[in-house]
Design a binder for these strands. Structure first.
Lengths: 191, 191, 191, 191
DNA sequence: CATGAATGAGCGTTCATTCAT
DNA sequence: TATGAATGAACGCTCATTCAT
């Protein structure tokens, strides 16, 4: 087992535990035990628990962004671009419920708030793509004349609730419903 | 000061502390100090910290539901009923950012999940009103033919994101925007 | 047992342990056990280990200063004043070997250095008395014309070595020898 | 690089780190890193941290003794011999503040006490020279009739305080003052 | 000889909860 | 009812030491 393996194991275990039990019910000792290493070993790979969490979050965001942007229809209409992204995000979280749970935990923690601020100011990532789409959409009068944060909220805000209800088993989000929901989100933002 | 006063004081202090600092940075000893009682006293009114949190959450939900339903247009159209509710919720949380923060904290915690399950099965509260509206809307083909949880998500899912961005100061949610957003949510669910 | 008792017990135990084993071999858990309290209890009386050590040191200094200055011959000659002080310090530490060991530990630790700086600038305590004596002595040409720190070193520098050798049993510092040594220190500083 | 080099490097780094940061803030891993070797390598040369410290101390003492005795006036009077030694020690530590700091750390630690006992019984080193001088001095009634440990304390006890105050910048120990202080120490022990 | 990843006991500290008053 | 001192298990983290390579 090489260095990368152990690091990855620890992150993997941490992701699972935190997703299921929350940050403060996932002690380092438990993460270590589940990862099959000694408590001190984690500190060879991560400076602190905060650091592990940050690394984990960044890693997860990168994976999500990569997957989500794969196959993105660069040449299609605004509508198609939006629908594509919306579906993709829904499906990603439905297929990776632990990532979803983890992200929900993360964004509602002291880390989360400052992270959000950082993200908000940093236009270099996932947001970038959609921001462009939305800005064009507004300019071309395809979309409602609303501030970016409002458009984002309308476009993607329903997803967490939807996915959560699906994951918790309150209803089943099938392919057809996904399609209808994506379309409904489009209705919310389109002119 | 009678029993109710002290109980209420404790809950009030707990709400404020938890909203600002999170659950695990709001020790019972601090809650007690801020509430002007001894640590042991809290345990006369609440079995445990978990219990206090549950009581607090229920209390808050009740207050919110009550306020939200005040002035509800029972005789208006489905559209008007929905718009009314949507605006009211947005405004409530904008005006009570600590309640908003508290609820976000709560719903993303181990408590949150079981609480949601309980709520989902219990049709006796806020959901009831909107559930009726939505069910009629679907029957009368005013609303899209989607499962209830999907309609709820589309209708109210954008609100937390919106309010959070407003509270964090990322943009200003003025009266006109609130109106447009409420209308956009309607567009999402209407046929 | 009242609050003061427990606080005093903890300080007493800490003094003994630290004197015998040093700071880093006197864990809080051991101090607690020896003091007959739970680990957390120490933190009711002291903010931190550092704090406990500081409190202990100040307390000890106060006791030492008080005892040393008791009976101080305010009306006698410079020589008598000096001899009195010198003997008194020697005897105090001979009779309180743990205080001696503790102080030696303390002054050779990160705390000690900053503490010394503080003490050096603060003329309000024990030093004050001797500083006055020494300054008069130099002015009146009774003492050698040396900087204060040099006079202090000559006057009191031999004491730690002496007391240490006595405590460790390398020789026996009897009354007659104390007298001769005090006189020898006087010879070192007198003109 | 041969065995001796690495061993010497480790000791050198350890000396510097311990002098500046103290024993328990100088972890083996840091010593290793600064010495440019792996953590495990130290254990090829020293059985344990304690062992390294002991070796370091002995090594330092040897170096100091050697330097101090270089130029020793074997044919001069007792007074000249003493003054020579006294000045030399003062100057050595003034010029090697890290050695001074290290020695102070060492002698006030669990190691220190047992080390002192050992030294006290072992007449083969630095003490030997001065012991002879002092014994002759007492016999010939040049020095006060005091036990050896008392004479040593009077003769060299002021030096640590003096050097410490100098190193900490509380006063400046110049050539003229050194001379006066050495003379004052002589006054303390001479008949 | 040399490495450095891995260990795990032990540290200082926190905090939900209890109970004698 | 109300107190608040006391508890002690549990936490995040460090570091002297080991051992497979």
């Amino acid at each position: 087992m090489n260095k990368t393996d152990k690091r990855a194991d620890i992150m993997d275990v941490a992701l699972n535990l935190i997703a299921e039990r929350g940050f403060h019910d996932s002690p380092m000792s438990l993460i270590a035990r589940e990862a099959g290493v000694a408590a001190g070993t984690i500190y060879l790979y991560f400076e602190s628990k905060d650091n592990l969490i940050l690394a984990l979050t960044r890693n997860l965001e990168d994976r999500i962004n990569e997957i989500i942007q794969d196959g993105y229809p660069r040449e299609d209409s605004i509508r198609e671009k939006f629908l594509y992204m919306n579906r993709k995000i829904m499906k990603y979280f439905m297929e990776h419920p632990l990532h979803f749970r983890y992200m929900e935990q993360f964004f509602n923690s002291p880390y989360g708030v400052s992270h959000r601020k950082e993200r908000f100011l940093d236009k270099s990532d996932r947001n970038k793509v959609m921001t462009d789409v939305f800005e064009h959409g507004v300019d071309e009068q395809v979309l409602k004349a609303l501030p970016m944060p409002a458009l984002f909220a309308l476009a993607f805000g329903p997803i967490p609730t939807l996915v959560r209800n699906h994951i918790l088993g309150f209803f089943y989000l099938d392919e057809a419903t996904i399609e209808k929901v994506a379309q409904a989100c489009w209705d919310a933002i389109r002119k």
